[in-house]
Design a protein around this nucleic acid. Structure first.
Lengths: 222, 222
DNA sequence: TACACTAACTCTACACTGTAGAGGAAACGC
DNA sequence: GCGTTTCCTCTACAGTGTAGAGTTAGTGTA
């Protein structure tokens, strides 16, 4: 191979991996492709990172460290919105890595940065511990799911081919509700849809009881 | 191989694939392993299903067709809860397939069955078209995310090793909010947590404006 | 019964994957 | 100059999905 010594740093590999992941997606990523791009033998990568999985952990770490964290404004709703929006922007900036991150089964400690901001915001707003933890899970899983849906293309308006496929799948009249909603389904609006979901969550979180809940189980209201 | 003729049906392959997927997870699944289990040459599978991906589509279809759909009760909130709970039970029954389904990028028409019930419920409850579509996305992505988190083990109480790792990652005091929530984070309660999230969503959905929204964008309330 | 036909299945092979293990070459400390 | 360490390469193995050709078994017809 190139044989140039010292051109391969831990961080350099991580950045190249992130780039490859973003351009080709997780399915298109391989250690060998990455090595080819770096002009190096595949096994050279293993000198800096013990395995593909270990490298992925580093990529996820780098990803989460680059998540934008807007400054607190004092309005907890606005702050939550801003943090979720930041996470969504991260997904747009790093589509492949973000998708891999969401699917990744390992624990990624660098999430702490984002989590800390969310927890602090909710605690300051008066949420009891249990509710804050639950709320963060709710907000993050919403934002991540939405962002992945965006990356997969589910929030693009349906093209004529897709629309036709959808209509064909409804033939027979077994799904009247879906049939009546076709036009709405075919014309999503990522920005507005995302804002709607956040509003629902924030409205719901503002309404669900704020008092301490028994450790053994959550009492369903009403 | 065995050479027994006619032992291999389309549906039989799909069921065996689903079983293998559930037992070994997506990473542990391969066409060759599946063939071995069926006592057959790997290429025999390709006589019935064009590719691994096509087979996966069939597995996802079978999965969604077996999603429990409780009968409507008239109370839309209870019905939504029941449908989401049914989806969650499906995840418990078919952990590997469900995980693969959530990650799967292709469109799975068999989702229509569940979607139809949700749409019909919300429309009957008075939701305008746009809100119903958004609400269904919200409810499904919540339930799917939660179920996948359960399957991954994020909703099990933390063991001593994991707890220690978490504490170690907080050393330095950079994450006071997380540190203060450690006990709560370490002791999740899947049932109560799931119910909490659903309550938040239902409360929020009941509160967010029900009037038609302009096609170009969603007007943030207040 | 003989033969063609077709459906069901196997065999071989290719390009790809992650990575263990050994070996080589360059840089550094003395 | 010489050992030692660091960095990298080479080869190899067991695994993947699947194209393409070959084989066998069962059926329909004469």
């Amino acid at each position: 191979m190139s044989g140039m010594r010292g051109t391969l740093s831990r961080q350099g590999i991580v950045e190249a991996a992130m780039g490859l992941l973003d351009r080709e997606g997780e399915a298109g990523f391989s250690m060998r492709k990455l090595a080819r791009e770096l002009g190096v033998d595949p096994m050279a990568l293993y000198h800096r990172h013990a395995s593909r999985r270990a490298l992925m952990q580093e990529v996820m770490k780098a990803l989460m460290l680059s998540c934008p964290l807007p400054d607190p404004s004092g309005d907890w709703r606005a702050d939550v919105r801003g943090l979720c929006q930041g996470l969504r922007e991260l997904a747009h900036r790093h589509p492949g890595s973000f998708r891999a991150y969401v699917v990744f089964e390992d624990w990624v400690p660098a999430e702490h940065l984002l989590h800390e901001e969310l927890y602090a915001t909710l605690l300051a707003a008066g949420f009891p511990a249990r509710d804050a933890v639950r709320a963060v899970r709710l907000l993050l899983s919403y934002t991540e799911s939405f962002a992945v849906d965006e990356l997969t293309g589910w929030l693009e308006p349906l093209g004529p081919r897709e629309l036709h496929a959808l209509e064909a799948s409804l033939a027979g009249g077994a799904f009247p509700a879906i049939a009546g909603l076709i036009e709405t389904i075919a014309s999503p609006d990522a920005e507005a849809d995302f804002a709607f979901g956040l509003d629902v969550l924030l409205a719901g979180l503002g309404q669900v009881p704020r008092d301490a809940v028994p450790a053994t189980g959550y009492q369903q209201p009403k």
